[in-house]
């Protein structure tokens, strides 16, 4: 008879955290749906039911916002492509071949991963400033890729080592070249890992703020930096527009998340949770 009590407690805990999780986002959505003048008085009008899509219309036709958004997509896509390509090549080598200094190289890459971005951001800025590479797509693509590569190497090494070598050798004997054997046999089998890596790298680059703000922000502007510019541009005047902009930026990630939910979790936990 008492059995249902623990289940109810569990539900209460889950729903409480659910509300906590969505509270800030729903507040932002609410603000984005308010008419302009709702926040120009004190106290601000949170509780009336006057809602409008006007802010979304303004934001989605704002040329600057569209540019910020396009820049971000370009950077995130190219850096995902670069880090998956470069990372899988290295992972394949670690999974398939035995060679001298293999142990050393693997530990070396693991050690590099431990270097916090916060302790190299000053020199990265300074180095690229002297090379005149600041405020370019290239620099953000490079920096974002590097922040994903070590995890991708570990993740993909795991995937490649589960694919039997014999499959490739069979293709090899059937007349495929080494490269072709890789593309025809191994690559498709490793596809889930590659998808997870690509999504991981894309989201990391898409959400990056500190690098984008520090190394670019004048000609090349990502949406995260653009959002802060929006704030300065409309400061104190239009909370509603900034919220609408923030929400338009959140939606693509949410859609991606809904579709690739599973790959997402694999990528972000480095393959620790696969169900």
């Amino acid at each position: 008879m008492k059995r249902w009590i623990p289940v109810v407690l569990v539900y209460i805990a889950l729903i409480a955290w659910l509300l906590f999780s969505v509270f800030p986002f729903s507040t932002t959505l609410l603000i984005a749906l308010k008419p302009k003048n709702a926040f120009m008085k004190f106290p601000p009008d949170y509780f009336s039911m006057k809602l409008t899509f006007e802010n979304f219309k303004i934001v989605l036709s704002d040329k600057n916002w569209i540019k910020y958004y396009t820049d971000t997509i370009i950077i995130a896509t190219l850096s995902a492509a670069l880090s998956v390509l470069v990372g899988s090549l290295a992972a394949y080598s670690f999974a398939r071949y035995e060679f001298r200094s293999k142990e050393f190289l693997m530990v070396f890459i693991l050690a590099l991963q431990m270097i916090p971005a916060a302790s190299v951001i000053i020199p990265i800025y300074s180095m690229f400033a002297t090379m005149n590479l600041l405020d370019t797509f290239l620099i953000l693509i490079l920096v974002d890729s590097v922040s994903s590569i070590p995890l991708i190497i570990w993740l993909m090494r795991g995937y490649f080592s589960t694919i039997p070598k014999e499959l490739e050798e069979a293709a090899f004997i059937d007349g495929c070249s080494g490269m072709k054997a890789f593309w025809a046999v191994t690559f498709p089998l490793a596809a889930p890992g590659i998808a997870a890596s690509a999504i991981y790298a894309f989201v990391r680059a898409f959400n990056d703020y500190i690098m984008a703000r520090t190394l670019a922000g004048d000609r090349v502007v990502t949406y995260t930096v653009g959002l802060t510019m929006f704030t300065n541009q409309y400061e104190g005047v239009d909370l509603t527009l900034v919220s609408a902009a923030a929400f338009t930026a959140l939606i693509p990630i949410l859609i991606m998340f809904a579709i690739f939910h599973k790959h997402f979790i694999i990528g972000l936990t480095g393959g620790a949770l696969k169900d």
Binding site: T28, L250, L268
Partner: peptide, 16 residues
């Protein structure tokens, strides 16, 4: 839903 705060960008989180 629990994963939302984690996958949202720090700027959106900060502003929210």
């Amino acid at each position: 839903i629990f994963l939302l705060p984690w996958i949202a960008s720090s700027v959106i989180v900060g502003y929210s």
